[in-house]
Design a protein around this nucleic acid. Structure first.
Length: 573
RNA sequence: GCGCCCGUAGCUCAGUUGGAUAGAGUGUCAGUUUCCGAAGCUGAAGGUCACAGGUUCGAUCCCUGUCGGGCGCACCA
């Protein structure tokens, strides 16, 4: 049981004894240090419902509050708040107990199968900054859900199908006569541009391209082979980016649009059988009363075009059904750009109406905002083009390398390179994850690579300071008692003990920025402790040993927390 | 026209089911090192929480309206 769960349970019992069994105790971490560690806010509301005096009810609740061995101080404040200060002994035992658990006390009693739709780039082009957020946020969420014990299934829903592949395979066929596919596709962006130019300039080629689409869909082996080659090479590009980013995505996680091809006619047939399908302007559509179009009429959700072709709307229905029926998901998280909000509302609505998913399956669009440049417009290159992800990541490493070099010019270059990788990539990821995902955010090299403030480098630095202590400590007693005396020790221990609640919150709200804020707070509390409490030079051996245990717990928590964000730590930097 | 999101310190952002005097960072200014990594720590200044109503013991949070900004709304994904 987490701290919050424990306190809420005890508070609820006290409320019941005091005559308010239905009241929510509303326990939360104290908003200010002077209020103690936790505050119980439910008394005022309960008093209102019972028509009694809140201070009086608070007194009764307090009398019934069973927190022996947990709290060292309880007091009523203001109109009826109950402030709780946890005892040092209790906190110390919580911290040590937590360290003995591989999940740091955050294991969930209700494991679910969580499908996470992550990254999902279009294979026709190179990965660009538009794919960064889904990849980073999805990766962090997947790691957190896994860590607390859920069964996570990552699904990289890559765009590997559609009319554009007719043009691309036709052009690849031409190019292969002069150079190997790997070479021709070395720069996907350039390849796409060239194919498009050829398509626009040469009517005969355009006809060929259209013919290739038909043959591709008909399963023509030669065109299919070209498509597969293209797909493989493009996927290899993606996985190179994932490797550089340190994202846990493998080829096994790829479940592209093409995987649902065979199911699309069945989706349409099933919709028809359910009586949901209407032919409109030659297309097969599902009309949704709950959504309106520009004319104020029910919105049309098109599943089959006039020409008989299918759309991503069809694929997404097949996909939702697959995730329920085949993957047996309890919860599906679509980590996709906020601009697709309406689309997913419609996918979810149609999936439910058609009975493609069980009513109890939780479908969530984990939406995120746009990455902006310093000019507050969508992030682009100076010339207005899209920024390739590899180039962005390379630049992050170069900038970090220059930074590290300026701080530590004497360090061996290989070491500086290694640090630059962790710092540069970590900075990019952290800057993204630290913001609330639904808002647009401004991409700014200078602030994200700063060692000051809420940044990855600050957190990585905090970790190296703890690590440095252990390099100099010599033999460490790993079973020494932890005794909290100083306020800075208490504050640090409290933060450590709050990790489980924090991870629960991240999972419940699918919001990694809470973990960032937590780790930043933890690092700050460690820095204050470090400043106020000598460890290696403590007054006596027992204090030294105790503080070393606190340091070890901090190091482990920081390292684990950052790893859940997909950010590496360094022993030295 | 309808729908979704947003408006909080000069700047970048938090603010947990409605809770106490709205918080961080950055920038500015001022302290701090014979002591474990000062890439640190401490303090000061900085606010009409867009605006106007409403709900209630209590509203940055919930409801209504207004203003301002972003995005989406039939055969691309």
């Amino acid at each position: 049981m987490t701290l919050l769960q424990l306190l809420t349970q005890r508070a609820a019992a006290a409320f019941a004894k005091a005559g308010a069994p239905d009241a929510a105790p509303l326990v939360q971490a104290a908003s200010k240090a002077e209020f103690g560690d936790y505050q119980i806010n439910g008394v005022m509301g309960a008093a209102k419902a019972l028509k009694t005096n809140p201070r009086e009810l608070a007194t009764r609740v307090l009398a019934d509050l069973e927190l022996d061995g947990i709290a060292s101080k309880l007091e009523i404040a203001g109109p009826g708040f109950i402030n709780v200060t946890l005892s040092d002994e209790f906190l110390a035992s919580r911290v040590l107990q937590q360290q003995d658990d591989v999940r740091l006390g955050a294991g969930t009693p209700h494991a679910e199968t969580v499908v996470i739709d992550i990254s999902s780039p279009n294979l026709a082009k190179e990965m660009h900054v538009g794919h960064l957020r889904s990849t980073i946020i999805g990766d962090a969420l997947a790691r957190v859900f896994e860590f607390i014990g859920h069964n996570v299934i990552r699904q990289n829903h890559v765009g590997d199908w559609g009319t554009q592949f007719g043009m691309l395979t036709a052009y690849l066929f031409e190019q292969e006569s002069t150079q190997p596919a790997e070479l021709a596709l070395h720069d996907l962006e350039e390849f796409y541009r060239a194919a498009k130019a050829r398509f626009d300039a040469d009517a005969a080629f355009a006809d060929t391209a259209r013919d290739y689409v038909v043959r591709l869909q008909a399963g023509d082996t030669r065109v299919l082979a070209l498509w597969e080659r293209f797909r493989e090479i493009s996927l290899a590009h993606c996985h190179a980016v994932y490797a550089q980013l340190g994202v846990k995505l493998t080829p096994d996680d790829v479940m592209g649009e093409s995987a649902y091809n065979d199911d699309l006619p069945k989706v349409v047939a099933d919709l028809k059988a359910k009586g949901l399908l209407v032919e409109s302007q030659g297309a097969q559509v599902v009309f949704l009363e709950e959504f309106r179009n520009k004319e104020g009429e029910p919105a049309a959700y098109i599943v089959q075009k006039q020409d008989g072709g299918y759309l991503y709307s069809t694929t997404d229905l097949a996909c939702a059904r697959y995730r329920d029926h085949t993957l047996h998901a309890d919860r599906v998280l679509y980590v996709v750009d906020a601009r697709q909000g309406l689309h997913f509302q419609q996918v979810f609505a149609v999936s439910r109406k058609a009975g493609f998913v069980r009513p109890e399956l939780v479908l969530e669009h984990v939406a995120f905002g746009t990455m902006m440049g310093k000019d507050n417009k969508p992030f682009k290159t100076r010339t207005g083009g899209t920024v390739k992800l590899v180039e962005l990541l390379d630049e992050a490493e170069v900038r970090a390398f220059d930074l590290v070099t300026s701080k530590n010019p004497d360090m061996p270059e290989a070491t500086r390179r290694e640090i630059a990788k962790a710092v540069g990539i970590g900075a990019v990821k952290y800057a993204d994850l630290a913001k609330h995902r639904t808002s647009d955010y401004v991409f700014d090299w200078d602030s994200m690579l700063s060692f000051e403030g809420n940044t990855a480098p600050y957190l990585q630095y905090a970790y190296t300071r703890v690590a440095s202590i252990f390099r100099q400590a010599g033999a460490v007693d790993e079973h020494a008692p932890l005794v909290l005396v100083e306020p800075a020790e208490h504050a640090l221990a409290l933060a450590l003990a709050q990790l489980p609640d924090l991870l629960q919150q991240v999972a419940a709200e699918t919001a990694p920025h809470f973990l960032c804020a937590y780790l930043y707070g933890l690092a700050q509390k460690f820095s204050r402790f470090y400043d106020a409490c000598p460890v290696l030079k403590a007054d006596d051996a027992a204090t030294r040993a105790s503080r070393l245990r606190l340091c070890a717990a901090t190091a482990n928590t920081l390292k684990t927390g950052l790893s859940l964000l997909g950010i590496a730590v360094l022993e030295e930097m």
